[in-house]
Structures are given as structure tokens and as C-alpha cells.
């Protein structure tokens, strides 16, 4: 792999790592591990931990995928490997 190819791949992996960290934090973190703590905070009528487990994590997942798509298209162009 040439240098530009290596840089492209490490930029991709960097983005994936960032997204996976958030993915983990909102579901396994806020929805499961820290849910009992977060339940002391209310979001409208929802205890916050419960909200993350049954509502919030899903909304954030959607945002993550579209962020990934936008960021990835940008990286593709930057390294000139995008589709014509």
C-alpha cells in the first residue's frame, strides 16, 4: 500500500473509532451500565437512563450513521478515492 493509501485507511479507522466510542457510550454506557445513576435525572416524564435504553440510543444511532456517511464521503474526496 502506498503512503496515501495508508493515510486514507488510518483516517477511516480514526473515524470508525470515534463513532464506535459514542455508539458504546449511549447504549452500553448510558442505557445499561450508568442507567441506575442517570435515572435520578428526569427528561420530561422519562427517567434519563430508561430514556436512553428505550428511546435515546436509537435516535443517536441514526445520527451516527448519517454522520459516518458524510464524513466518509469527505475523506474519500480528500484522498481522491471517491466514485465517479
Amino acid at each position: 500500500m502506498d503512503d496515501s493509501g495508508k493515510a486514507y485507511w488510518s483516517a477511516t479507522l480514526g473515524l470508525l473509532t470515534k463513532i464506535l466510542i459514542i455508539w458504546f457510550l449511549v447504549s452500553f454506557g448510558a442505557g445499561i451500565l450508568f442507567a441506575p445513576m442517570l435515572n435520578n435525572i428526569m427528561l420530561g416524564g422519562y427517567p434519563l437512563g430508561f430514556w436512553f435504553a428505550q428511546q435515546g440510543s436509537i435516535y443517536i444511532f441514526i445520527a451516527l450513521i448519517f454522520w459516518y456517511k458524510a464524513a466518509m464521503d469527505k475523506i474519500d474526496r480528500q484522498f481522491d478515492v471517491h466514485e465517479e
Binding site: W23, S27, A53, I58, F61, I65
Partner: peptide, 11 residues
């Protein structure tokens, strides 16, 4: 767990 599990996989 069903809600998170069956949607988180799409990420």
C-alpha cells in the same frame, strides 16, 4: 435490550 440490540447493529 431488544430495542438497542436490534437497532445498534445497523451502526
Amino acid at each position: 435490550l431488544f430495542l438497542m440490540g436490534w437497532t445498534g447493529g445497523y451502526v
